[in-house]
Design a protein around this nucleic acid. Sequence first.
DNA 1: AATGAATGAGTCTTCATTCAT
DNA 2: CATGAATGAAGACTCATTCAT
Lengths: 195, 195, 195, 195
Amino acid sequence: MEISNSKPDTRSRILQAAIRVFSQKGFHNARVEEIATEAQVGKGTVYEYFSSKEELFYQLFKSCSDAYLKSLTQDLASLNSVGDRLEKIVYLHLKFIKNHRDIARIIFQEHHELGEKLHRWIWSKREEKLNIISNLLEEGIRKGELRAVNTRVAAQVFLGAVVSVGSTIAFAGDDVPLAETTTAIVEIFLKGVGR
Amino acid sequence: MEISNSKPDTRSRILQAAIRVFSQKGFHNARVEEIATEAQVGKGTVYEYFSSKEELFYQLFKSCSDAYLKSLTQDLASLNSVGDRLEKIVYLHLKFIKNHRDIARIIFQEHHELGEKLHRWIWSKREEKLNIISNLLEEGIRKGELRAVNTRVAAQVFLGAVVSVGSTIAFAGDDVPLAETTTAIVEIFLKGVGR
Amino acid sequence: MEISNSKPDTRSRILQAAIRVFSQKGFHNARVEEIATEAQVGKGTVYEYFSSKEELFYQLFKSCSDAYLKSLTQDLASLNSVGDRLEKIVYLHLKFIKNHRDIARIIFQEHHELGEKLHRWIWSKREEKLNIISNLLEEGIRKGELRAVNTRVAAQVFLGAVVSVGSTIAFAGDDVPLAETTTAIVEIFLKGVGR
Amino acid sequence: MEISNSKPDTRSRILQAAIRVFSQKGFHNARVEEIATEAQVGKGTVYEYFSSKEELFYQLFKSCSDAYLKSLTQDLASLNSVGDRLEKIVYLHLKFIKNHRDIARIIFQEHHELGEKLHRWIWSKREEKLNIISNLLEEGIRKGELRAVNTRVAAQVFLGAVVSVGSTIAFAGDDVPLAETTTAIVEIFLKGVGR
DNA sequence: AATGAATGAGTCTTCATTCAT
DNA sequence: CATGAATGAAGACTCATTCAT
């Protein structure tokens, strides 16, 4: 009976290696051979599990992205106040980036180099997120928690703000205090910087 | 004094062609030969003016980026109120993107595929912008126009908001009313969305 | 005595599968894995019975070719007249192709793609056939059935004629009446087309 | 003024090299790099002139084949008697093979390994030749030079005979006397081997 | 200054073959 | 005997760059 195995299955090893290599080098500068070496498998083995480099990237992107969105949705379910939920979104996003910088560098960057197909898919994901936030804001307006603002623009502002701070953590390496930064962002978004 | 020439000089033609090709295909999928053809020069001629494809991209990026920042700085000089200047920044940014979508797609996208050197340079440019905004916000705080917020975070929020809306224009093709969108963004940033 | 087995032995199953795959795709485009799948065995099993893809092809070619030649020889034994034997050769050849188009596509096509060794072996087989025919023609000349022609050339002409018509059946799919076509070929060979 | 050049143009050099390599190794065992080396050009240069290895082979095959058929047609034009023309066909075919064994090994062998497209094209060429011969035979029958035989079968017999002897020259290396062999073949075809 | 034919280092990808189970 | 996951040598093809004209 095999309970646990010190050597995880090959497919996972390849995906993990791919995360490391893609996040450091980007898609075009990553070499399939390097991913294979990093995963301690032969070059051909990569192709046993993924039909091409592009497919490997796509699968990686999709699984990471889906996992992120799923966990986000779950954690929001228990909260009532719109403000709390916005705060949770920011907190989870920044925490995710801190803990999974490699993955973050992959799924939160723009990918204009990868052909229309993936590009469209990524933008559709962005639209999904914008819709989630829009709906949240509309709910807030209905409930009287928020002012009657243009929710499409406000959603873009909110998402942009979060991504901007997140990028600074992921790419510039800023090591910020999570709780405080979260509070700061949400406070600005809710109260504004004006006097 | 430079007298206008019906046949713009070769270097400019190459840069213009490069803008078109890079913005449509991205750096890695752009072919030097295609840029040369587009510029109506021979492939070798490109190398008379730029030592490599990467150098061409860098020069292109730098000149576009500098021109943008310079015009931005000029236009801000005449304004006194911090709020007016923030509004101007947003307006000019969105207008620039609308009018120069090609260039915008180049200088406002992330470039993680281009190796450390250029990557660092681009992030340093981002830091410049963040500093400009930070300073502006600090000035606002000193003058009593703004609340005493964390200016580093607030600058990131502001920049993120602007870039986010700009991206939607540049990449998704949203055709938004400039003045209204500008007002909406700045209002949210100053007053917040909260009640 | 071999008792019929509902599950024929593995080696035969592999050979049968190889006939199907090689005849449809040719040697280079045939995949060992496809042959294994077709034979309902594992990829490694093929190598239990044949040391390499080339060896598999060789064994296949040899067994099919030998079986064909053996049956041909047997069927000729009972005939006395040279003309009858020539007619039998043509008839059996065309019938074989009609009934075993797959095998025919393998053993009656040229194989210049397979390296010197196999190439030589195949040409030696051709020489065998030419010799059988030559001897037959010489016998016919001795017996006074045939004119004194150059038997080497005549054998090549006869073999070429038969192969040519056979190819049309095997590769182009011509569905010809066996008896009539056989008669036509032999008549031309014996009487010529001249008046 | 450039009258002649000891170094023929690159495209021709590649084609010549391709003839040598393809005829010795066959399509699949030929290496693009080997062709390039043989042509004294870089590997990439081959791709400046031919979009792929397959395209190179196709162009080579087509040009050689067309040139052969064209010269054949021209040489036949001046002859009246059907017998003379059949003889000419045989003679030219064997002579061509003797003088251009490399090309012959390419254009007169079967190519079942090269995918449907080329395969079909080659069979259509074979049909062309069969039709030319058929028409010739029909003319002979009308003129009373020949017996009323099945011209489709007779054409296949004739073509098969010629190809068979030609193959022996091209692949087995038989060095036959051209005139005599030609006469022998045609005589068998016209008079038959029977008494 | 301008050119574009020539180049070859660098990559992805295939697939026959092996071997631990 | 049987297997199929793993392998890596081998090869087609790309494209930034050079240089003779």
